[in-house]
Design a protein around this nucleic acid. Structure first.
Lengths: 224, 224
DNA sequence: ACCTGAACACCGTTCAAGT
DNA sequence: ACCTGAACACCGTTCAAGT
């Protein structure tokens, strides 16, 4: 492919892609608060204003970074033979991506109807169809799966943020919550108290999958 | 109850509660971005620093405002006779609260394990128990319901934010998303395209309830 | 066409000083 | 004990000016 002479670029010139890659690195290393036009322009050895030539604003940039991560995730998930298994694999792929990049969890929520969400919605919808769900029930099924995934993703991101703000790692954080829950009033909060202990040793990923399976059971079970 | 003389207060003196009430009003009228220590101190006719005597920081304030709204909501929901109906009423109560105060949707997500979440978690757990779900499956059931509610709440908040930033009302926003979806590639995005039209006329509240019912079906249907 | 970087209009938070 | 308000260290975004 030949560029018109005159639009020739230096090898290391700015581009939307380079900006997005640098943003992902910044977000991964410093959390949601780490993405700053100043930090970004320093990392890219350019002026803050230069970034605005390639990107509309911060929200656009965050969504684009999220989209890049989600695009890779979805591509690498592939399509299995059985719809339910494919949905599980897809959901786990998104979960793992959010686990590796907690900021994706909140970026996903902040981009309603945008590209990153559609990338997840589409294969989810195709598999729900393949499951044999009638047309008029497909949206409920897909919406439930998607919103559940967004909820877990958001919590994952919040846990990370919360811990980072208080300089706690995951274990310390869970420990703090478990302790607080176990000290709640016994009359008013019996259930919360009863699960406080289990919180310390629970497996986020397994719990997430249990939720997906529960929803899949709801989708395929007969309506009364 | 008699206060020690000397800690007597002017009728209109600052208090945590007054600050929280003013915050809720500010958030309701100006959205998530409207809660500012400057705006708040102006509304309360005080200095910005005064607020810090009653509140640890902005995150604490937002969570407290969210907690006040959720507390009222849960109280007014009441407990019905049948567990499933009570769970539905509870979920709808939270949905309506978030619909009336979209910022609650994102505040809820940002306070993992904190008081507002526990207020929802507890009655949900009690009703799941009442449903006869075995001990070792209760957490999965409650977690799925809760995360789904958080996901929907987050989307609701994001829709509002997104619309506000672009000065679109709900109809315009849905219309913009529906149009974008219907213009996606037919080969790659058949499902998303197929539901684009329905998006324009869908009922958030009914869809939300359909998801709750689907999950309830999953909870009560036999495991294989 | 693309980049620079100073300037603008904001933030949350702190803290010496007041009452 | 509670409040004041200036000051600090940041933000995102704009824009005249450069190449």
């Amino acid at each position: 492919m030949v560029r018109k002479t005159g639009t020739q670029r230096r090898e290391d010139s700015l581009s939307r892609d380079r900006i997005i890659e640098a943003s992902i690195e910044l977000l991964d290393s410093s959390g949601e608060g780490g993405l700053t036009f100043r930090a970004l322009s320093e990392r890219l050895a350019t002026g803050a204003g230069a970034i605005y030539w390639h990107v509309a604003n911060k929200s656009d940039l965050l969504t684009a970074a999220c989209d890049a991560v989600i695009a890779r995730t979805i591509t690498s998930c592939g399509v299995g033979e059985r719809p339910a298994a494919t949905i599980r694999a897809l959901a786990l792929g998104v979960f793992d991506a959010i686990d590796a990049h907690p900021w994706v969890g909140s970026a996903l929520t902040q981009a309603p109807g945008q590209s990153p969400m559609v990338r997840i919605l589409e294969p989810l919808g195709q598999q729900v169809r393949a499951l044999g769900v009638p047309d008029d029930e497909q949206w409920a099924a897909v919406g439930t799966l998607l919103n559940y995934m967004l909820g877990v993703g958001g919590q994952n991101a919040a846990n990370g943020q919360f811990g980072r703000a208080r300089a706690l790692d995951r274990t310390d954080f869970l420990d703090a919550v478990a302790t607080a829950w176990s000290q709640l009033d016994a009359q008013e909060y019996p259930f919360t108290r009863s699960i406080a202990a289990a919180l310390r040793s629970h497996d986020d990923r397994a719990d997430f999958l249990a939720g997906i399976d529960l929803i899949l059971r709801g989708i395929t079970s007969p309506r009364r």
